Computed example of a mutant assay.
Amino acid sequence: MTFRYDFAPTPFGDALAVFSDQGIVRFDLSEAADPSVPWLLENVAQQLQAAPEPDPGAADDLVSVLDDYFDGVPVRFDEHLPFDWRLTSGFARTALQVISEIEWGQTLSYGEVAVLAGHPGAARAVGTACRHTPFSIIVPVHRVVRADGTPGHYGAHPERKRYLLDLESQG
């Protein structure tokens, strides 16, 4: 199995995109100039048990879909590129796959996702799955909100979650 990486521009900075032979395996919003990117690559290499190789242009198809998304076009990333779910398992994978089905401009609460994932009462586990997703933006964890309808956090960047929800509410 070979793994390769490239960067994709977003309004938040360049995102790290890692691909396997089966599809995208990780999409991370850390900026390319961010000193944590080498750490991210080391972390991904540990998780994959293989070092991803740089591959300029590997993210070209993803960039095209991201451009549409950030232009306000309702897209589903999983309809445009294959996902390699190897970095998730168990309930986290199930929850993220449920989240993948949340339509553009819609939201579900953490508890609603837990019910749809077959584990009522596992709202906190849904939050953990969202926090640790290997697929920022492309699995729309930003569409998962608190039970009272407030957005909640998005890692250390709640302003990004608000931006994405506002973008989708305009379409």
Rank of each mutant, 00 (worst) to 15 (best):
S89W: 10
R124Q: 12
I102C: 00
G111P: 03
G111Y: 03
P38L: 13
G13H: 08
F27E: 01
R93N: 10
V44R: 04
P56T: 05
V18L: 03
E112K: 12
T133G: 09
D14A: 07
A122L: 08
L108Y: 04
L62R: 04
T88Y: 12
D55G: 11
D21V: 13
T10C: 02
V98K: 00
G121R: 06
S136Y: 11
R124L: 13
A59K: 02
L41N: 09
Y110R: 04
A15F: 08
G57S: 05
D61H: 10
T133S: 15
R131E: 12
P82A: 12
L108F: 02
L29C: 04
E112C: 04
C130D: 05
W104C: 08
P140E: 03
E103G: 07
W85Q: 02
A123G: 14
D61S: 10
E79C: 01
V139D: 00
A58Y: 02
V37G: 04
L48N: 02
F77A: 00
L29F: 03
H142Y: 15
T10N: 06
D84W: 06
H80N: 12
E112D: 13
V141C: 09
F77Q: 00
A122W: 12
I99W: 00
P56Y: 04
G105H: 11
E112R: 12
L16C: 06
P140A: 06
Y110G: 02
V126T: 07
S136A: 14
H132G: 06
R76T: 10
A58C: 04
R86G: 10
S109K: 04
P54N: 15
A92K: 14
G23Q: 13
T88Q: 15
Q97L: 01
D14Q: 07
V113M: 05
V75L: 09
V18Y: 03
I137Q: 05
P74E: 07
L62H: 03
A50R: 15
H132C: 07
W104G: 07
A92D: 15
D6T: 05
F91P: 06
D14R: 08
A15Q: 05
V44S: 10
D78P: 02
F135L: 06
L41R: 13
D71W: 03
V126N: 04
A50T: 15
Q22N: 13
A17P: 11
D14S: 07
A8G: 01
T133N: 10
V98T: 05
E42M: 13
S136Q: 13
G127R: 08
R93E: 14
S109R: 02
W39Q: 14
D67Y: 04
T88P: 12
P52S: 11
P74I: 07
T94F: 06
F27R: 09
P11T: 01
